[in-house]
Design a protein around this nucleic acid. Sequence first.
DNA 1: CGCGAACTTGACTGTAGTCAACCTGCGTGG
DNA 2: CCACGCAGGTTGACTACAGTCAAGTTCGCG
Lengths: 252, 252
Amino acid sequence: MRHALKANLELFVKRLLVRSILSDEEQQAILALPVHIVELRKKQDFVHIDEESTYACFVLAGLVGRFGQTSNGLRQFTRFHVPGDVADLHSTVRPIGIGGLNAICDTTILRVPHFAIRTLAARYPAIAEAFWRDCMLDTAVLMQWLINVGRRDARARLAHILCEMAVRSGQDQQIVLEYAFPVTQEQLGDATALTSVHVNRSLKALDSVTTLKSGHVQIHDWDKLARIGEFNPAYLLGDTGAQRQRRLVEAS
Amino acid sequence: MRHALKANLELFVKRLLVRSILSDEEQQAILALPVHIVELRKKQDFVHIDEESTYACFVLAGLVGRFGQTSNGLRQFTRFHVPGDVADLHSTVRPIGIGGLNAICDTTILRVPHFAIRTLAARYPAIAEAFWRDCMLDTAVLMQWLINVGRRDARARLAHILCEMAVRSGQDQQIVLEYAFPVTQEQLGDATALTSVHVNRSLKALDSVTTLKSGHVQIHDWDKLARIGEFNPAYLLGDTGAQRQRRLVEAS
DNA sequence: CGCGAACTTGACTGTAGTCAACCTGCGTGG
DNA sequence: CCACGCAGGTTGACTACAGTCAAGTTCGCG
């Protein structure tokens, strides 16, 4: 079913272009990065915590969760990665310390060697900046998750995450009111720091506004959901659009 | 009292050198960045949320908290920045979306224009990588805060933060058992997602292991504190030490 | 058809929040 | 030099949101 997908980084380049300006040559250089395709089964950890990896993982299809855990094994997802994301681009410059990766559902990734990415960044300053910027978007999302878990009640946490995914699942970061989100309530609990029981109850309390059934989200009332989740897309979208970041160097 | 400090970025360069290799020329180039000194009073917000700043803030003295907040004004600190840190280096490539900055106590910062930083990064690939890496350390800490708030009880949250600051307050990232941490219990609550009342009680429960009195931390039993806070310094220190990241380009 | 994973529901518990009163120490001004 | 004011810290009584435990139910898949 998944064999129709082009096993290359096209979607990643497209994502970068939302926030950064890259010349044709630079785009081609990224697309020419060596990749190695890997299929993963659901619930499979494929980058372990404290493991020092030598490649970054581009998500081609499926859903990936980044996570950390406490010493007694409690897991906390810190980020969901949809197709088009590189789940651990940061590991290129810092191969440890930002958690493990888990395939939430059956997932296909492309492995890209760190060495190749670093070489590219060193050769093309605009690419280095684009990668750096992409990592900072990631950090902005992470920060929202901290606010979510620290400062909102169960219903609002779920609403916020569902809003975030509604923006990030869309092709050009526009809001989509219906999207695939193949998580179990248990996994959602690990993302929101709630138990699966409480996720279940809180989701029920939201069912006039949105429903999550067998990995599929339907949002019936976006405004209300955004209000409940106190969702303001500025942190995701604030730097998108035309030519925000002028180039500092000529395309080489 | 503070006039003895050299108002330059020396401490920042020193921090970078812990994890990145920079030639003399590159180090000098960073030190030559234009700076503008600013004094702040305690509890003063100096970068507002959603404000698009045009400079990054180097912390020369004092303590800075990065924060986000919910629409009803609940504040969540997402990071503390000690002298030597650039509190918002990330804003160089993404000027919005990663929160506001607040001077926890009376603080001195140096403002460094984004434009100058970007120009430097474009000219020296090794500097770009060092800046990128520095931001990723920042993200690693942020991720630990999410785990902290999501998965640990009050006492463990406080213990973990006190351990983190014990490492980050030291000159060369070694653990110091006594350090300045001029926060109120209210502010600590905003960092750990607890109320000041509960911070007070939980701190009391820790007082055989550590004490925090008038902005000064004393750790009496490091091993016990680290055990309570489930603190493993790997995420802070895992990439330090000799020549971990080989240079990819010759020093120019 | 049968098994297991995921979901659902109910009853009870517990950690942290809320509210409110009071204490303490420090800086300012009379 | 003392008195006042106020920010920050401390304590107690009560509340509530979410966790725990346990018993079903539903659904998808082999």
